[in-house]
Nucleic acid binder design. Structure first.
Lengths: 133, 133
DNA sequence: ATGGGTGCAAAGTGTTTGCAAGTAT
DNA sequence: ATACTTGCAAACACTTTGCACCCAT
């Protein structure tokens, strides 16, 4: 990888990812950073998110509509509400055993697995019962 | 949901999904169906894939670049090679327990979880060792 | 001074949609 | 006859990229 420079923009993007815990999209990061620097462009935000991911300073979570970012670097699971779309970390241990099982069954070298739970959050459950009354 | 019709195009799309086991993208289905009907349009293929998914006749697998489709309807895990991108079903049992655990820890109603394993397939492993010789 | 980084706008990808004509029921 | 479906092209959402200028090293 080529030599990296510390630009004001790169730092702003990194700080913006670290400031949130709701797995913002690139565009949300762009909007956040915009409040600090009203000249920064979307292209720069996308480029820096990619660079920071490649250098291992942030994590990228592939999601249906758009990629999401987070500052947690350890392997962990996610939980998404199918109604409101909110995405959270799940306090459940990463299961190393199934990586070995998968490797044994397939001959693949397994790097990891990614798990996302889908459901309805308490708020949306509440909203739904109200509607049906 | 509104009344569905059985069009020639819808049947071609369904058959095309059922004919493959490598989780084709919408565009791959389009190309397959094109060999049967050289007038069908991409829009029609996308529309029918969505309808068939809503009616539960096929399954949609959300993947980074594009959605993939399959005719298996049961919950199961996937395995993707990080090098060549191939996506396969994994012969590993779906773990119902962690859905309950996740529900208990969060208050969510959990519908299911989706797990994808990432690694290097035997072919790509072989290719890599050859290159390094 | 050098070459990585920036802002801008254009282009790329994958997918959806408005419309008028066509067709399954 | 009705209204769902089609082909087409335009529009969309998200992301990447070419370029000329800028700035961290």
């Amino acid at each position: 990888m080529k030599q990296q420079r510390n630009t004001k923009q790169r730092k702003l993007v990194l700080d913006a990812v670290r400031a949130r815990f709701d797995h913002p999209s690139a565009d949300q990061i762009y909007l956040d950073v915009r409040t600090q620097d009203d000249n920064i462009s979307r292209g720069t935000v996308y480029r820096n998110l990619n660079i920071l991911f490649q250098t291992g300073e942030i994590n990228q979570v592939k999601m249906p509509k758009s990629d999401r970012f987070e500052s947690r670097l350890d392997k962990h699971y996610h939980l998404q509400c199918l109604e409101c779309g909110e995405l959270w970390d799940l306090p459940l241990d990463y299961n190393d055993d199934i990586d070995e099982q998968a490797a044994g069954k397939t001959g693949y070298i397994i790097h990891r697995h990614r798990t996302t739970f889908e459901g309805i959050c308490p708020e949306c459950q509440h909203k739904n019962t109200e509607q049906n009354e």
